[in-house]
Amino acid sequence: MINVVIADDHPIVRAGLKQIITEEADIAVVGEASNGVELLNLVRHHDYNVVLLDLSMPGMDGLDVLKQLKIEKPHLPVVILTIHPESQYALRIIKAGASGYLTKASADEELIRAIRKVHRGGKYISPSLAEKIAFALDEDASRLPHETLSDREYQVLCLIGSGKTVSQVAESLALSVKTVSTYRARILEKMHLENNAELIHYAVQNGLVE
């Protein structure tokens, strides 16, 4: 039996995932968490075979949770489930240690295959993401400005690029306004941009926001 724990802040999403999984005789949902802190507590006290982790959760977001899981349980497979398109976060998520990346729109068709594959020790990614990773591994591939950012800077870029104010970004990431402002200043400097308008334009032009 493949024992799965689901972390998502939306009960309806968790219920939908459970419904898909319970139709399979060899997979069972044996744990649920509504945020990153709850998930980490569960994983510390119980044994699971696969983690299904939402990327966007209040407080400690999915990327931070993933990094902590890789420190505490380096061999525990983590499949990221998210509304964000592959172009926005997938490559960073895989580099951070995830065993799989699924958009929620494709979960109905791909979820079971992903769980079984990562449980066997494999990686579950789409052909388009595999191509992106191949190019990223090419040492001669030129890096776009946003690819030079740290993970946190990249998160701030995407949130500001989607139209959020510094205060809204701070609330979303559970950071102070001052800290987010510092990240924003670093982003503008690294990317040679002047203001939020240019930042938003860059994010849209490069497909970093929907």
Rank of each mutant, 00 (worst) to 15 (best):
M1R: 11
V4L: 06
V5E: 02
D9W: 03
H10Y: 10
I12L: 14
I12C: 08
R14W: 07
G16C: 07
Q19R: 15
I20H: 01
T22W: 11
E23Q: 15
A25W: 06
D26Q: 06
I27C: 04
V29R: 03
V30N: 09
E32G: 00
A33R: 04
G36D: 00
V37Q: 15
V37T: 14
V37H: 06
L40R: 05
L40V: 07
L40E: 01
N41T: 14
L42S: 13
V43Y: 04
V43H: 02
R44G: 10
Y48A: 04
L52F: 06
L53I: 04
D54R: 00
S56Y: 05
M57H: 03
D61L: 03
G62T: 01
L63W: 00
V65L: 02
L66D: 02
L66C: 01
L66Q: 01
E72H: 12
P74G: 03
P74H: 06
P74F: 09
P74I: 07
P77T: 05
V78Y: 09
I80S: 02
I80H: 04
P85I: 07
P85V: 08
E86D: 14
Y89P: 01
L91S: 14
R92S: 08
R92D: 02
K95T: 13
A96D: 02
S99F: 10
T103I: 07
A107T: 02
A107L: 00
D108Q: 13
E109N: 10
R113V: 08
I115Y: 02
R116E: 01
R116Y: 02
V118G: 01
R120I: 06
G121T: 08
K123N: 14
K123H: 15
Y124A: 07
I125Y: 11
S128M: 11
E131A: 09
K132G: 10
K132E: 13
I133V: 14
D138M: 11
E139Y: 13
E147V: 09
R152I: 11
R152H: 08
Q155S: 14
V156N: 01
L157W: 00
C158Y: 05
C158M: 09
C158P: 02
L159E: 10
G161H: 06
K164L: 15
T165S: 15
S167M: 12
Q168R: 09
A170G: 06
A174H: 13
K190F: 06
K190R: 12
H201F: 12
Y202R: 10
A203V: 00
A203D: 00
Q205N: 15
N206G: 03
G207W: 01
L208R: 07
V209N: 07
E210Q: 14
